[in-house]
Amino acid sequence: MRWDRLFEDLQDQFASEWEAERAALDTEAERLRLTRLPLRARLAALAHPAGPEIAVEVGEDVVRGRLTAVGEDWAGLAGDAVGILRLDAVRAVTLEHADLLRSARAEPARPATLAERMGFGFVLRDLARRRVGVVVHGIGGGALSGTIDRAAADHLDLAVHDAGSPRRAGEVTGFRVIPFTAVTWVRMDAGP
């Protein structure tokens, strides 16, 4: 009778130690997974039109809204303003705790969508093609309004004019060549 009890105690002790070791391994595996999780993936987990409201500190600005798309090096945000944020200019993202945890969950592997493969320059070239008025916000907190004439590999040409006015020769007050690295985010002009 005592032997049975001894073996039961040993078996229970072994089971407890096994569970503790397995929990430690699971915790370490989760830590390792998180070390490989880029900001882009966390934002992509939150990107959909009915997604959560977030606040993004980008350069000197705080932009509020919902993430609509996440590309290779940019994120689209719709809220008070519609804009394109450069991911490497993001300083912080403020969101609810549940959304924070949801963004850190493991996502099943899937092929990248077309939007996820598009770079910042690709999106700016589309705005140039559409002749959309924009406000380009810079690293130092300044902003220039105008129309993107061209977006090259690592910079854009901006025809500077008043926000809300169309790009007409008489309205253009100057031209700027702006490196992408000097841009924090680009807001689409709401127009008049």
Rank of each mutant, 00 (worst) to 15 (best):
D4Y: 13
L6K: 10
L6I: 11
F7A: 04
E8S: 14
D9I: 05
Q11H: 14
D12V: 10
F14N: 14
A15P: 02
W18K: 15
E21M: 10
R22V: 14
A23S: 05
A23R: 08
A24S: 13
L25R: 12
A29C: 07
E30K: 11
L34I: 07
L37H: 15
P38Y: 09
P38F: 09
R40L: 10
A45R: 14
A47H: 06
A47Q: 05
H48T: 09
G51M: 06
P52N: 10
P52D: 14
E53N: 04
E53T: 03
I54G: 00
V56Q: 04
E60Q: 12
E60F: 03
D61I: 06
D61P: 01
D61N: 13
V63P: 00
R66N: 11
A69Y: 06
E72V: 03
W74A: 02
A75N: 08
G76Y: 08
G76I: 07
L77G: 00
G79S: 08
D80V: 01
A81I: 08
G83V: 08
L85F: 05
R86T: 00
D88M: 10
V90Y: 10
V93N: 08
T94L: 11
T94V: 12
L95F: 11
E96N: 11
H97C: 00
H97D: 09
H97M: 07
H97Y: 09
H97G: 00
A98N: 10
L101K: 11
R102Q: 15
R102V: 03
R102D: 15
S103L: 07
S103N: 09
A104D: 12
R105T: 14
A106Q: 12
P108F: 06
P111E: 07
A115N: 02
E116A: 10
R117C: 10
R117D: 03
F120N: 02
G121L: 01
F122T: 15
R125I: 05
D126N: 09
A128V: 15
R129Y: 05
R130L: 09
R130Q: 11
V132R: 09
V132F: 05
V134E: 00
V135F: 01
H137C: 12
G138I: 01
G141A: 08
G142A: 10
G142D: 15
L144Y: 05
S145N: 04
S145V: 01
S145A: 13
G146K: 02
I148Q: 01
I148L: 13
D149I: 13
D149R: 13
R150W: 03
D154S: 09
H155R: 14
H155N: 12
L156Q: 02
H161I: 04
D162M: 02
D162Q: 04
R167L: 08
E171Q: 13
V172G: 02
R176S: 07
I178K: 12
P179M: 04
A182T: 14
A182P: 11
V183W: 02
V183N: 02
T184M: 00
W185R: 09
W185H: 14
M188K: 11
A190C: 00
G191L: 02
P192F: 02
